[in-house]
Amino acid sequence: MAGGAGLTSAPPLDRGIPDFLERPGPSPVHRLNPLTKATLATVTAVAAVALGGLVGPVVLVLVAVILPAAAAGVLGRLIRTSLLLALPIAVSAFLVNLFFFPDGRTVLVEVGPITATAEGFGFALEILARILAISGAVTLFYLTTRPAALVIDLERRGVSPRVGFVANASVQTVPAMVERAAQITAAQRARGLDTEGSVWRRIRGIVPIVGPVILGSIAEVEERTMALEARGFTRPGRRTLLWTPSDTTFERILRWGLVAALVGLIAVRVTGVLR
């Protein structure tokens, strides 16, 4: 190589593995093994559904989502992201149950032919709690785990990288879609799309934004697949790993403990001991 390399570059041979790859996470939650965090997220989500009611999921969210998020210093982002993630399902599920709950008797409000009942309201709240528990648990994992960490950790345990890849790529798709939607919205606003006017105008504006988001994503899937193949991702045999997440006996016990607790909970629910 000729001299006069970049302004800041050292000779190539002096550089080893970059320190930022092996730098420990900023909080104890970040430093947990990714499988531990994935287990926690899954157990929280399933347990929220299995528990049912209102108190169970709320306590669960406080202990397994809010508390660790606060400890990791990501509480603000967690609340914003998980609400955004849950919003579409939460709103529709809430409205449907509020107005159309089959056993509703105590009428709260009547709007034309539809009525909101107290029973419907109660059930809608329970559904809301479960949805928020699920989105909160997933978001906590996403905010405290580096993108490749789970893939690498599963791979080290002998799981095919493709399984980890699918899990990871689906999580990564969310911010990519949000970014894409923002760019498309900007382009359509430049063509006079009114996103600041009345509700009806905004609803009409959804098509020109959602259209390219979906069409673009579908068109890109094939190219992404080709790029992965061309970069050797489907090659059989072991890949080289640059770094591996740490794991401890304590965490291993914690994971099995969580799974056992969940199995216990489900067993109790199925046999109906709590009812």
Binding site: D194, T195, V207, P212
Partner: peptide, 23 residues
């Protein structure tokens, strides 16, 4: 002025057509 008002005076064509074509 809102973007919609400005759009009547300033027409901006973005670099990537795939980020706007929907019809």
């Amino acid at each position: 002025m809102t973007v919609a008002q400005l759009a009547a005076r300033i027409g901006l064509v973005f670099q990537d057509p795939d980020r706007q074509i929907f019809a």
